[in-house]
């Protein structure tokens, strides 16, 4: 019976096919609905019918392995990258990854933010050797497309503009309080934060950002603290 639930090619294992179809439909519609809730921007970009067909194909190929459905769907973006019918929308996978990051951030652990004044307690010259620990909800989603603008315009959070699709953006996704926040990072800020997230020392991370002369280190630090995303300064 289990095998026929997600495989439409298999015959119903019972005499009453219409009744077995109730279970088939419950399984698939439930999984498609779960992805639909996670991915409003992907849905808006593809249209509802395309989305449901793609989500159903994904669910059949990668069914959940756990009853905790909030943990299912992380592979959808990568799967969309390789889904031939979606090839004309090359940023679809990145938008799906951003939406997945939002879901994970929403359910991430709690942590107390450190005030900016904590920096004042660090001896001059010692900061370069410190590591900034960020809020456990922080996720970075790198894209060669303007993924944050695409997501924000598609979900009505920003007015539609003529986007330059060649502009890369990295999304900084977090949930310091109740709301999930998304901020677009330019490449140099993304390089800095990627180094921080990877556990690098502050000095090395600052150098990674400073490769681009446009990088404004103090503005980036102030923004991180103001957003409540720094939770510890570690040796």
């Amino acid at each position: 019976m289990a095998g026929a639930l997600l495989d439409p090619a298999r015959p119903a294992p019972t005499r009453d096919a219409r009744r077995f179809a109730v279970h088939r439909n419950n399984v698939l519609a439930g999984l498609v609905d779960a992805l639909a809730e996670t991915c409003p921007a992907v849905r808006a970009l593809t249209g509802e019918a395309f989305f449901r067909a793609a989500a159903a194909a994904f669910a059949r190929a990668h069914p959940p392995r756990s009853p905790v459905l909030m943990e299912w769907g992380g592979a959808f973006g990568g799967w969309l990258d390789a889904f031939p019918p979606a090839a004309s929308v090359p940023y679809l996978g990145d938008v799906a990854r951003l939406e997945w990051a939002r879901t994970r951030a929403y359910h991430a652990p709690e942590a107390l933010a450190l005030p900016l004044s904590a920096l004042g307690a660090v001896a001059p010259g010692a900061l370069a050797e410190k590591r900034l620990r960020l809020h456990p909800s922080v996720r970075l989603v790198a894209s060669r497309f303007p993924v944050v603008a695409l997501w924000a315009e598609t979900t009505g959070r920003a007015p539609r503009t003529a986007l330059d699709l060649s502009r890369p953006e990295t999304a900084l996704v977090a949930r310091p309080e109740d709301e999930v926040t998304v901020r677009a990072l330019a490449p140099e800020a993304a390089a800095f934060l990627s180094a921080i997230v990877a556990g690098g020392r502050f000095g090395a991370a600052a150098e990674a950002g400073a490769v681009d002369p446009a990088f404004d280190l103090s503005a980036e630090i102030a923004a991180l603290f103001a957003a409540g995303l720094v939770t510890a300064l570690e040796p």
């Binding site: 289990a2 997600l6 419950n26 399984v27 069914p63 959940p64 756990s66 009853p67 459905l69």
Partner: peptide
């Protein structure tokens, strides 16, 4: 039942 051979079927079967 809802799980079989490691797959979660998201229904009460």
């Amino acid at each position: 039942w809802s799980s079989h051979d490691g797959v979660y079927y998201n229904d009460l079967l």
